[in-house]
Structures are given as C-alpha cells and as structure tokens.
C-alpha cells in the first residue's frame, strides 16, 4: 500500500491554501482528514502530484449559532459534529448522522467539508445536509460564493467546486423542532450505507434525501411533494426512488436498492412523525 510519489505543503489559513492550489493547478489536491483521499492514493487510483494539507487550518473548525442557521467550519471533524450541543438542539438529524459515519477512528479524522467536497453519493453527510436544505460557502481566488446543496452535486465524485476553490463553511437551517428520522442500512455496523435515508418532517413540510441511490446524493422531492399534498407516509414512501437511479453492486441490485429505499424512507418518516 504505497502511494505514488507526491509533494506536500501545509497551509495555515484558507487564503494560503487557495493561493497554493492556484499555484500548483490541477495536479494539486487539498488534504483534510485524508480518509477518502489517502485510501484512493494508496490503491494508486488517485495520484496527485501535490498535497496541500488544510488539516491544521484551525479557524475553520467551529460550530456556531448564526441565528437562522448553524454555521459549521469545513474542517470540523465528524466527532465534533456528532457531539455538538448546538447541533443537538438545532439540527439533531445532522449530529445523529455524523455519529453513523464509519468508526470512531474515522470520525476523529474525517471532516464534514472533506465529506461534502468529495461528493460521494454513498457518504452520509452530503445527503443529510441536502435533506436539511444546507448552503455551502466556498472560497476561491476571487472571494467567496454560496451554493445551495441542491445545486452542488454534479455527478459521481463531482461537484460545483472549481479546482482552485475551497469549501469553507456549511450553513444548516435550524430544524425548529421538526421530527426526523435517519436510516442507514448496511451489512456491517461500520460500513458505508447500502442505502441510507435522512428525513425530517414538520406538519406537511418535509425533506428527504437518499444515500447511495444514484451517482449523487438524491433529494427525494416526490416523497416530500406527496406528503405536502396529504399523502400517507406509506404512499409517499412508495415514491422514494422516483428521482433515484441506483446502480447494482455486490451488496444490492438496482431492484433491491429501490425496494430498500421505500422501506427505509417509510421507516424514517415514521420516526419523523412520532
């Protein structure tokens, strides 16, 4: 497990990281927790020539109450998201989901920004922030811009981030007491989801997103629309795969994934309706 040769630079601020990445261009990659990037490098599936380590950019690790939303620094570790009092109060769905990422070692290294920037449809936090209607703040050489989670994911491991842009903050609207449910179906407790569901519900309003049901995290808008029109949880859940396009793999065929999605959406919504 030896990666191909690479160079390494450590950035101490977002600005420095962005100037470094602009300097080295598309051969460079940010290194946050390393828990998605390094495994790929060890298998030599990724061979960046330059790693820019942003893991020590301290001022990007925070969870703050910003009034209508909670602001989370991109370098915040999963463990801090999981145990945050502010999130327990205002976005319990997110902290709960963070507690289901991998194992304790992964949660102590991996970052929410890395997880979202990596844009892996099988990851828990992209779908969860999508369900919650989060906004991502990214910073490039020309300054900052905001991207709605719903517009961020472009394809398998592809996002709206430009090569010289860095994700700096995740803004999660407060849940304001909405009920929520999180279902992660896997074969071993610490695995990625075969199918996962993050859902919240407040009266007729709902947000439902799916993990590993296509090349991006999927917003199950048909389910939310049906609920808005007064459909029962069971009937709405039957529409779970309307927006999805799940692949077949060792653990699940497309058909089985779709079946799981409706069962799990129903269960998540039942939890959210309690």
């Amino acid at each position: 497990m030896i990666p191909a040769a690479f160079d390494y630079k450590r950035a101490s601020s977002a600005a420095e990281a962005i100037s470094l990445v602009s300097q080295y261009g598309s051969d460079a990659k940010f290194l946050a927790g390393g828990h998605s990037l390094l495994p790929l490098m060890k298998l030599r599936l990724a061979q960046p020539a330059m790693l820019i380590d942003i893991g020590r950019v301290k001022d990007l690790s925070y969870i703050k109450d910003a009034g209508k939303h909670i602001a989370i620094g991109a370098l915040t570790r999963h463990m801090d998201v999981e145990t945050s009092k502010v999130l327990h109060e205002h976005a319990p769905l997110l902290s709960h989901a963070a507690g289901h990422v991998g194992d304790a070692q992964v949660r102590h290294r991996g970052t929410i920004g890395g997880s979202i920037a990596h844009a892996d449809p099988a990851s828990d936090l992209p779908a969860t922030t999508l369900a919650l209607g989060a906004t991502y703040v990214v910073q490039g050489p020309k300054g900052q811009r905001e991207i709605a989670a719903a517009n961020f994911y472009k394809g398998f491991l592809e996002s709206d981030l430009a090569a010289d842009e860095m994700l700096v903050e995740i803004r999660v609207p407060k849940m304001q007491g909405a009920g929520w449910g999180f279902q992660k179906f896997n074969r071993r407790a610490q695995d990625w989801a075969i199918v996962g569901v993050a859902a919240w519900r407040r009266k007729n309003e709902a947000g439902v997103a799916l993990v590993n049901m296509g090349s991006t995290p999927i917003l199950a808008t048909s389910v939310a629309d049906a609920l808005a029109k007064g459909a029962s949880v069971g009937d709405a859940a039957a529409l779970a795969s309307n927006e999805a396009d799940p692949q077949s793999d060792l653990n699940a065929s497309t058909e089985y994934r779709k079946h799981l999605a409706s069962v799990l959406v129903r269960r998540a919504l039942e939890d959210a309706s309690k």
Partner: peptide, 16 residues
C-alpha cells in the same frame, strides 16, 4: 476477484 479489499470482503467486526 471482486472482493479484494476489506471494504468488499466483509470480515465482521466486534459490533457485528
């Protein structure tokens, strides 16, 4: 072999 890493070859862990 489609299960050549521990991500695909499912050795159970203590919690499983």
């Amino acid at each position: 072999l489609k299960t050549s890493t521990l991500a695909e070859y499912l050795v159970p862990a203590a919690c499983d």
